[in-house]
Design a protein around this nucleic acid. Structure first.
Length: 300
DNA sequence: CTCCAGGGTAGTC
DNA sequence: GACTACCATGGA
C-alpha cells in the first residue's frame, strides 16, 4: 500500500476506538461495515467516487487506509472528515462525563463505557431509511431487512475476497419494485415509506442541507415529520445520528424505556415526567445519554 | 396462541 | 391537543 493512501487522525481525549467499534458490532449483523482484528472496514461514496477504507488504532492516532479507489487530496480530506464525523472525534465529552458522575445510577458508565462516542450516520437518506426499517420491529429483524435492501439495491466493492456494500442511492430505490420489497418481508407501509422517501430525495424535496439550514430544532423536526412515514421518533433519531443534535431524543423508544426501567428511573413506561426530569439534567447531552443507555442494553 | 419489538397514521372527542 | 383503533410481520 502506497504511503499516499494513508491518513492519520490524532486520537482525542476520552476516546476509545475499541468501545466504538464494539458498539458498531454489538450482537447484530450490520451490512454496512466489517469489523475484525480491531479494525473496521467500510465502503462509502463521495459523489461519484466509491471508496473502500479501513480504520484502526495506531499509537496516538486513528489510522485510515484506503483499500480501493484512487483518492486525490480533496477526496482524502473528505474521507478524514467522514471518519471524524462518524466517530464524533471533534467533541469534548468531558462535560457529559461530569454529568454522569453526578448521578449514582449512571456514574458507572463513565468507567465501563469510557471513551464511547455517539456513532453517527451522516447521510440523511440512509438514516431515515434505517429508522423507518426499525420502526416497531426488533433490531435483529431490522438488520436483516436492511441487509436485504442494501444487497439488492446498493453498489458493492469487492476486495480480498470480500464484498462491501454501499447504501443504495435514492435514485435507485425510487425505482424499486414495491412487490419485491414485500417479498423481502417489508410490510406494505414500510415499503411505501422507503420508496416514497427515495422519491422525496430524488426530486430534491428534501436534503440534509435543507434540514441543516432550518433555523432551529423545532423547524427541523417539523420539516421531517411532514413526510409520510416520519413521526417524531424517526425525525429525532435522524437528527441525533445525522446532525448530532443533542435534542434529538427518540421519545417513547422501547429500548430507551427499557434501559430507564433497568436503572430504576421509572417503574413503568408512562412516567414521562420522570424521564423529562432526567433529560433536563443532561441538557445539551441528551442524545449522548440516550446512546449510553442503549449501550447499557447490550452485554459488556 | 400470545406478547413483544429502537412506531406511524387516521379518526374521534 | 390527548386518546384510541388499526396496521404489519417476524421472533421468543
Amino acid at each position: 500500500m502506497q504511503e499516499n493512501h494513508l491518513m492519520l487522525i490524532p486520537r482525542p481525549a476520552l476516546f476509545s476506538f475499541q468501545e466504538c467499534i464494539w458498539f458498531l458490532n454489538r450482537n447484530y449483523d450490520d451490512c454496512l461495515h466489517t469489523i475484525r482484528d480491531a479494525t473496521v472496514t467500510k465502503a462509502v461514496a463521495f459523489g461519484s467516487n466509491d471508496l473502500l477504507f479501513k480504520v484502526r488504532e495506531e499509537g496516538a492516532f486513528l489510522r485510515i487506509e484506503v483499500l480501493s479507489g484512487a483518492p486525490d487530496t480533496a477526496l482524502k480530506n473528505q474521507l478524514v472528515d467522514y471518519v471524524t464525523f462518524w466517530f464524533d472525534l471533534e467533541r469534548d465529552i468531558t462535560p457529559f462525563y461530569q454529568l454522569l458522575e453526578t448521578d449514582p445510577k449512571l456514574a458507572y458508565m463513565a468507567t465501563d463505557y469510557k471513551g464511547l462516542r455517539l456513532m453517527g450516520i451522516e447521510d440523511l437518506f440512509e438514516v431515515l431509511c434505517w429508522s423507518i426499517i426499525g420502526q416497531q420491529i426488533n433490531l435483529t429483524f431490522a438488520y436483516k431487512l436492511k441487509r436485504r435492501l442494501v444487497e439488492r439495491y446498493g453498489r458493492k466493492i469487492e476486495y480480498a475476497g470480500e464484498v462491501h456494500f454501499i447504501f443504495p442511492d435514492p435514485e435507485v430505490l425510487a425505482g424499486a419494485d414495491l412487490a419485491e420489497l414485500r417479498v423481502m418481508q417489508f410490510s406494505l407501509k414500510k415499503a411505501e415509506y422507503i420508496i416514497g422517501m427515495a422519491n422525496v430525495f430524488k426530486t430534491g424535496m428534501l436534503s440534509r442541507e435543507m434540514i441543516v439550514n432550518e433555523p432551529d430544532f423545532e423547524a427541523r423536526q417539523k420539516k421531517l415529520t411532514s413526510f409520510k412515514g416520519i413521526g417524531v421518533w424517526t425525525a429525532n433519531y435522524a437528527l441525533m445520528k445525522s446532525l448530532r443534535d443533542s435534542a434529538g431524543i427518540p421519545h417513547g423508544d422501547v429500548g430507551l424505556l427499557k434501559a430507564l426501567q433497568h436503572h430504576n428511573f421509572i417503574a413503568d413506561r408512562k412516567e414521562s415526567t420522570k424521564i423529562n426530569v432526567l433529560l433536563s439534567r443532561f441538557k445539551g447531552w441528551e442524545s449522548y445519554l440516550v446512546f449510553y443507555l442503549w449501550r447499557s442494553l447490550a452485554p459488556k
